[in-house]
């Protein structure tokens, strides 16, 4: 039995197709990841599944209900942790949770117990009657997550849940997602542009690029897509690394990509049976001293590059033509 069945789902903004005839299923109880760069259409897909945006074409069944015809039923069974915080800074944690409890028709006694249980779940009992506006970003996000769970939804949608958090909070939120999935059996669908996150958390990952799902499988199967090919990823430590050498590496045709990691380390992806030998030759010919060579396991990043021919880079953030109020707002978590 599937928790979500997406069929031919499409969203067009004027002439621009943000989500392009997407099909996938999410199994009950799994953590499903949508991985893709900025502007890939992750949020738009999530919003359509949450009944917040109407599809231009196609449809989906969420928790057994059609997102267009039975949108009201869908809403009863899902929770959303959106890109922006869904919380009122001037209200306390308790007041925020209570408001949503009331909107989900929870009876008074059950609601109080639920609030206490959820606060304990994220170890924030002490903060119950403090205003959310005074919380750190990590704390806000924890309350934001349990707020989405106030009515014990079958399916929880998380749109970039660790965006803008510091490393420690990121770990905490990831841990929280896993705990909710294991302890409550909640089906989860999360989006991310961080490869490691998808790899760590998700049972299955759909890679989305320019509105299309380009691959969908478990992380390990996805990686086999790359290791099954003749592409190699190697890390060289070259004490006398020069820009000239880097340039020469980039210019030869069997090298797929070159990524300088620091003054002495460089990551090279190369294609072809004898690419390893040819790489060593090339570096030596340029007077490069190779200290260490590591053959790297493929990552989801390699999968993405393999599939799209492009890298997912953090700095594409800036280039993303996203609509945002010019003055910014407090609910928006900072972007790294």
């Amino acid at each position: 039995m599937n928790a979500i069945e997406v069929r031919n789902l499409t969203k067009r903004f004027n002439s621009f197709t943000a989500v392009d005839h997407v099909d996938f299923d999410v199994k009950k109880g799994e953590i499903f990841g949508l991985l893709g760069p900025n502007g890939a259409g992750k949020s738009t897909t999530m919003r359509m599944l949450c009944t917040l945006t109407r599809p231009s074409e196609g449809t989906a069944k969420v928790a057994g209900y059609d997102i267009i015809k039975e949108d009201a039923r869908v809403r009863e069974h899902i929770g959303l942790v959106a890109e922006k915080l869904i919380m009122y800074n001037d209200l306390t944690a308790w007041e925020n949770l209570r408001l949503y409890g009331k909107l989900y028709n929870l009876p008074e006694d059950k609601l109080e117990k639920r609030i206490d249980k959820l606060l304990k779940f994220v170890r924030m009992e002490k903060w119950k009657h403090k205003r959310v506006g005074t919380f750190s970003t990590g704390m806000k996000q924890k309350i934001n997550v349990i707020r989405a769970m106030i009515h014990e939804p079958e399916i929880l949608f998380l749109d970039e849940p660790t965006l803008g958090l510091d490393p420690q909070s990121t770990v905490e939120i990831r841990e929280l997602v896993r705990r909710i999935n294991i302890e409550q059996g909640t089906t989860m669908i999360l989006t991310t542009h961080i490869m490691v996150e998808a790899d760590m958390l998700c049972n299955r990952v759909g890679i989305i690029d320019r509105g299309k799902i380009v691959a969908l499988d478990t992380p390990s199967n996805l990686k086999k897509l790359v290791s099954g090919t003749d592409t190699l990823t190697m890390e060289f430590e070259i004490p006398n690394l020069t820009t000239e050498l880097l340039g020469n590496l980039k210019s030869v045709d069997f090298v797929v990509s070159v990524l300088q990691e620091d003054a002495t380390h460089v990551k090279v992806r190369a294609k072809g049976e004898d690419s390893f030998d040819r790489l060593l030759d090339l570096i030596r010919k340029n007077n490069g001293k190779i200290k260490i060579v590591k053959n790297l396991e493929p990552t989801l990043e390699d999968v993405f590059i393999h599939l799209t021919g492009r890298e997912i880079r953090e700095d594409t953030k800036k280039a993303s033509p996203r609509r945002r109020p010019p003055w910014g707002n407090e609910n928006e978590r900072g972007r790294r």
Partner: peptide, 14 residues
């Protein structure tokens, strides 16, 4: 809507 909290209300079964 700008701040994003409207989604919370639109998501609720109300």
């Amino acid at each position: 809507r700008d701040v994003g909290t409207l989604d919370g209300m639109l998501m609720a079964p109300i």
